[in-house]
């Protein structure tokens, strides 16, 4: 089963601001060491940091209309600043790996990560609508 660890954004990540040295080096090394450990254990599938929401946008749906709204977005703690995707054997193993995740804002700071389980193909019965969806997704990802 696959779980995604989301790092929640805050004011600093939204401002594109990183901690000053030497915390920055410490934070990067802790993150690198953690992801290296995931790699060595064969559980890491993917990981990336996300740029501030000011570089992104939303599409809002209302009735038949849709409108594009440029970032940034106000509610920082609702936003995601990065993710790590892992493959594990059980919920508990996901908990154990997540427990070892370094504080993403630097030790001593307030921060939050959220961990969610992905739907897997087996969670759905074959369904033409879903296949169509996957087809589009596939073409989008090249």
């Amino acid at each position: 089963m696959r779980y995604m660890i989301f790092v929640k954004a805050n004011k600093d990540t939204e401002a594109g601001k990183f901690p000053p040295e030497p915390e920055l080096t410490r934070l990067f090394s802790a993150m690198a060491a953690y992801h290296e450990e995931l790699t060595k254990a064969g559980v890491l599938l993917d990981a990336s940091g996300l740029q501030p929401s000011s570089k992104g946008f939303k599409v809002k749906y209302s009735g038949d209309k849709r409108s594009v709204v440029d970032g940034p977005f106000a509610e920082a703690k609702e936003l995601v600043a990065g993710y790590t995707l892992i493959q594990v054997k059980s919920h508990e193993e996901a908990v154990e790996w997540a427990r070892r995740f370094p504080n993403p804002m630097g030790e001593g700071k307030d921060a939050e990560i959220e961990v969610r389980r992905l739907y897997e193909l087996d969670d759905f019965e074959p369904n033409p609508g879903l296949d169509k969806f996957r087809e589009i997704e596939r073409q989008a990802k090249g």
């Binding site: 599938l45 993917d46 995707l85 193909l121 296949d131 169509k132 969806f133 996957r134 087809e135 997704e137 596939r138 990802k141």
Partner: peptide, 13 residues
């Protein structure tokens, strides 16, 4: 096979 059902993440890896 229906290629839409292939797992793109595993292919990329």
């Amino acid at each position: 096979q229906n290629r839409a059902r292939w797992d793109r993440l595993l292919i990329r890896r």
